[in-house]
Structure formats: C-alpha cells, structure tokens
Nucleic acid binder design. Structure first.
Lengths: 359, 359
DNA sequence: GTGAAAGCGCTAACAA
DNA sequence: TTGTTAGCGCTTTCAC
C-alpha cells in the first residue's frame, strides 16, 4: 500500500532543525539566507543537514517577520460572468511563474468581476497577501493606474493604457512594429494590395497593429483602401466574411495580414472557395500570439514554432516587478518586446495578381 | 492628480482596530469570527467599525496562528518547456476561484516541469503554504495519488487516473456518457454511418469518449467501422485529413462526432470540398468543452452558449476539496458532471445519404 | 462577556 | 562568529 519509502522525512521547522544541529535558530537562519557572518564550515553543515531533512522555510512566517509577503498577485478581470478566460493569461502566467520560482516568490491568482474590481484590489492590499501585482487587460486610461498608485502597491501592467504615458511600469508586445514589419515583408514580396483583418480596434493592441500596417503602406506608397481593412472579433466566421467580401472586390488583395489563427482559417476557406491557391495566389501572415495556442498548427505548414512572445512578456514583467519591489522609488520601467510573426502559406515572391477565378 | 479621495483609510491591523474600539484584540477577533460569547451590541459595534476602516485580517498571520494556510494550490504540469498552456486550466480555475473567494480561501498557482514534479509537490507541503491541492492533467495510474496520500495532503483530481479506482477524490466530466448521448442523438436523426474524430486515445478522456460512442453504436446495431474512427491530436489539419479520407470511402459517413472545435473546422473544409452541404448532407456534433473557448463561435450558427462544463467542474472540485480539508477522514468523494454538447450544423432529420458528390 | 498572555515559524536588533 | 530576545498579526487557552 505504501509504495514510497519515507526517505523524505516529515517536514521540519527552523526550531527543530536548529535543535538537531545544536545551533540557535538565528545562526541556522543566517546560514541558510547567505549572511556573511557565519563560519563557512558551519554554513556547510547547516545546508547539508537542511537538505537531508528537506527543510523548507515557511513562507508565511517569513513574510510575517520581514513584512514582505514573498508573493505576487495576478488579478484577472472577468468582465462577463460567463465569458471564457482568455488563453493569453495562461501563457503569460506560465512565463511569470518561472521568474517567481527562481526568486523564491509565490503566485497568488485572483479573478475579479467588474462590479467589484476596485474592491478586489483594495482587499488584496488590506490583507497584505502580496508585495505587488500584475495588471492584466488594460483598458484605455485604466482607472487602476491611479488606484494602485494611491495604495502604493507596486505593479506592472501587461499592455498599456495608452501610447504616450510612461509614468508607470509596463511590458508590452510591440504590436505596431510587428504589423509594420509584416506589412513591409509583404511589400517586399511584391504585393500591391494588402488586406488587414484586425481585431476590435477599440482595444489598444488592435489599434496599434493598424497603425503599423498604415505606416508601412503609406511609406511604400501603397493605396490604402478602406475596403481592405476590417476590425471585428477574431472568429473563423468573421475572417471568412471579411475575406470573401474583399476577394469579390473589383481589385482584390493578393495578401492578408491577420490578427489571429482562427480568423486565418476563415480566410483560407474564402480563398479556396474563390478558386485561389494559398501560397501561390495569396499570401497570409499571422500574428503569432494567438497561433501559439494551437499545439498542432500544421494547417499552415510554414509555421515555425518559437517561444510565444506572450510567455516571454510574462517573464519580463515578473522580473520588472521584483526589481520594483526591491527598490520602490525606481523610476518607471517599460519594455516593448518584438513579436514573433508567422508566415502562413507564403514562402517566396508571388504573382502580382490572382491567377484565375472560377466559380 | 489624486482622483480618489481617501475615503478608504489606510489598512489597519487587529491591534489598531482594538485600540480604536477600546477593546482587547481577543474580543475583536471573537466578534469578527462569530464566536458566541460576545455581547450582540459589542459585535455590532466591532463589525461596523471594522467595515468603516476596511479592516481585513492578514491571512498569513491567521494561518500561522491556526495552522491552516487558508490557501489552495493548483499545480499545472508543463510537460514540454515550450508547450502551450492548455486553455482548459484557465476555465477550470476560474470556476474554482469563485468557490475559494466565497469561503475566504486564496489560490496559489504553481507550474511544475516534469523533471521535478515530485519535488514541486514535496516543496509545497514542506513550505506549508497550502491546505490542499487540485491535481491537473491526470495520467493513467498517476503516481501523484500515492505521493499525496503519503504526504497526507488533501487533494482532488480534475479527471481520473482510471475508471475503476474510487479511493481518492475526483471531479470529472462524463465523457463516456456525453458521447453516448451524442451518438444516440445522431442515430435518432436517422444516421446509419457515424464517424468519430477523437483526440489521442492514450489520454483517459478520449478513451472514454470512444467507449460512449461504441456503446451507442452497438446498442443500435450500427456497423462499427474502423475506417470511421480516428484518434489523433485535435487540430484543424487532422480533422481535415480524417474527414477527407472518410468521405472518400465507398460508403461514406453522413455524420461526424468531433472532440474539438478546431478539428470540426477542418471537417467542415473537407465536407464542402467534397461538394456536400453541412446541415443537409452531413451532421456534426462537437463536444463543448473546447468550443466554449471561442468567444464567437458563429462558424456554427446552431451553437447555443451554455456555462462551460469545465468551469462548473472547477467549482465542484473546489467545494469538494474544502469539505475534505474540514474533515480529512471523510471517505473519498467523486462527481461525474454531464457535459454540454453542441449541435453544429444539424437541426433536424437528414437525408440518409449524401446528396451528390461533385469533384 | 471580556482580557492577559502565550505561541504559530520566522527574522533582526542587540549582546556577547 | 554565535546566541538572546523581541516581535511580525493573528488565535486561543485560561483567568477574571
């Protein structure tokens, strides 16, 4: 019945460990925490014994004694009761978690409904269970910036509340540049008419992606045609509808810039329905943040797996926050990460115009 | 600059609150925790003042004093370093979180890499930072069951390690019954040849889904044809390939039972490429656990939004765990939840055979 | 019905 | 270099 021998002894606390060693708690604590005033031989002995007994300090007690919680809060907004959790969070948190573990921090997860979002934040600081928080899903001019500053709780935002303010910490993916680069790539491939299938541009990230697209297009003196830009929720159906309408245009696009994988699937449907071949008649570039959620994305064979930019953003945001906690009067830090782009079904220069259009 | 008036006073601790009230910490604590030996008028006064000052007990100190952490751990396995976080976790955790909040518990999230999974569990109990854990992604005969029992840490598994053992707590979606029901529905609609596009059947959930399918098929004396069953990673491409092969069969299926939304998109592509019409020539039923991840699923208009079974599972698992923590010698509890099914592109009885097959 | 005091597991002055 | 002591914010005997 007991498959595992108790080679792992029952958990032990500092006092017991000190007793075993015949030392005081203080010395043991100092040895374990790398204080300089401990004799090296003592330290060795302490560390070895601690390992032997699998001693792990109780983080809560440590927190009580030091005034630090050694815990970071991630507060995820749930705007609609039945709304689904955005998979981006998982990815971001996986990255952040790595950083915390490496630094002895724990991760406290809280879901906040919008009716009582402010209260959630106030609670979390009143309870004193975290040293800082990561703010997810920023809105334009988000009230949480002022709230957190007032409460003097260190925080880092994943994203930005607008493009100009820099008086708080954030980590973001450079959506503008990503789409500027992607558009440029399509231009270099010889495309004249490039379509943009974007997410809702009320959201900061989508708006910035559009700016990048426009920048490259106007820089290369390409015609900017409203009929070739859509902004809507990123679903398969919306991708399909958008592409279908665009391909029916008198002067249809030869390339699509897409903000999500599912939308790209819809585009592909419209393309083949129009009798065109992806990779020959039409190019598609997909922003990778979403693509990486699909384990197996061989629907677009040219996909090359890279570490998700979102996960990286999580790591960087965590590092930034820990730095800020160590040194609260630091001036605001910001970081703009380059995104990974996926070239879906397009490897070389293409014919300028669709080959044919049957049915 | 300061948009919020300090109607919320700075956080206060028990001692300060007691001083303000002119009472001892003991009495205040008792009043707040609903102990009977406090005069009702005193309690009223205490509660009101606490509210006024937005007093929140420090959970860590409370934990130290009571020996309980008031925290539940969720440990998410990361089998491959660069693997993407399964969106199911987010959904499940959102449900669990609701339960925790309602009961004064906090949620500690830990990512565990497979090389040091056992150590992660041992650490978490040695640190004493949780009162119990939820185990995610169970494998067949998962070693964690024995490990957690040995460490005497209360736990609930999301899923099962096999179908017979009942000597531990779990909450699962009834995958077998879901697919049995779905198959039956298709049979009732008059279908003779029903295809199954399943996930990898080494995973417990997929294996059970297949059992449900087989049950209904053999019960209705339908032919069980290996050519009409696939088991592979649930991607768009795999769905496409599977459906394409099946539709090229001499006696093709008129209905598909699909384990995921993206795979269903692939099936749809194959169907229309074969010149068939979904909802007329072919029916599709999708298991909803995955479907719910897509905010906008109008690719299949008959989709009706329901609360995700996964989220519900999270709530139930959390409730179960809290109960177990309160009463550790309770005999193992189990719960099998009914899944929501989505009827995609099929509303009524269909023609028995595909109408035509062009190109 | 209320309070004083000890203690949860740890750290950090201050002494030695 | 090591130990003594007090205290982090709370609960909980045990007295009153």
């Amino acid at each position: 019945m007991k498959p595992l021998e108790p080679l792992a002894l029952p958990p032990m606390n500092l006092k017991e460990l000190a007793d075993v060693l015949g030392l005081s708690q203080t010395t043991v604590s100092r040895a374990l925490n790398g204080y300089p005033e401990v004799r090296e031989s003592t330290r060795q002995r302490v560390v070895r014994t601690a390992e032997l007994h699998n001693y792990r300090p109780n983080i809560r007690a440590m927190g009580l004694a030091t005034g630090k919680a050694m815990t970071i809060g991630h507060i995820i907004p749930m705007y609609f009761k039945n709304e689904v959790v955005n998979p981006v969070f998982g990815e971001f948190i996986a990255g952040a978690s790595q950083t915390y573990q490496a630094n002895g921090y724990e991760l406290l997860l809280t879901m906040a409904e919008d009716q009582n979002e402010e209260e959630t934040y106030r609670n979390i600081v009143a309870k004193g269970s975290v040293d800082g928080v990561i703010v997810h899903s920023p809105r334009t001019n988000d009230f949480r910036v002022a709230l957190l500053k007032e409460m003097e709780l260190p925080f880092v935002i994943h994203g930005r509340v607008n493009e100009s303010t820099l008086d708080y910490c954030w980590v973001d993916v450079n959506n503008r540049h990503a789409f500027q680069r992607a558009t440029q790539l399509l231009i270099d491939l010889g495309h004249q008419r490039i379509a943009l299938v974007n997410g809702p541009e009320i959201l900061n990230f989508a708006w910035l992606r559009r700016q990048g697209y426009l920048e490259a297009m106007s820089c290369a003196a390409r015609v900017i045609d409203d009929a070739l830009m859509t902004s809507a929720e990123l679903s398969e159906a919306n991708g399909y509808r958008a592409a279908q309408a665009m391909l029916a245009h008198a002067d249809p696009p030869t390339a699509f810039l897409v903000s999500s994988y599912v939308a790209a699937l819809g585009i592909r449907r419209a393309v083949s329905q129009a009798g065109l071949v992806m990779g020959e008649d039409v190019s598609v570039i997909i922003h990778d943040d979403e693509l990486s959620f699909f384990h197996n994305s061989d629907a677009f064979p040219q996909f090359t797996a890279t570490q998700s930019s979102v996960k990286l953003a999580g790591m960087r945001a965590a590092e930034m926050l820990l730095k800020l906690i160590d040194n609260p009067q630091l001036s605001p830090m910001n970081e703009l990460l380059e995104a990974n782009l996926t070239l879906g079904a397009s490897t070389g220069p293409l014919k300028q115009k669709p080959a044919s259009r049957s049915s």
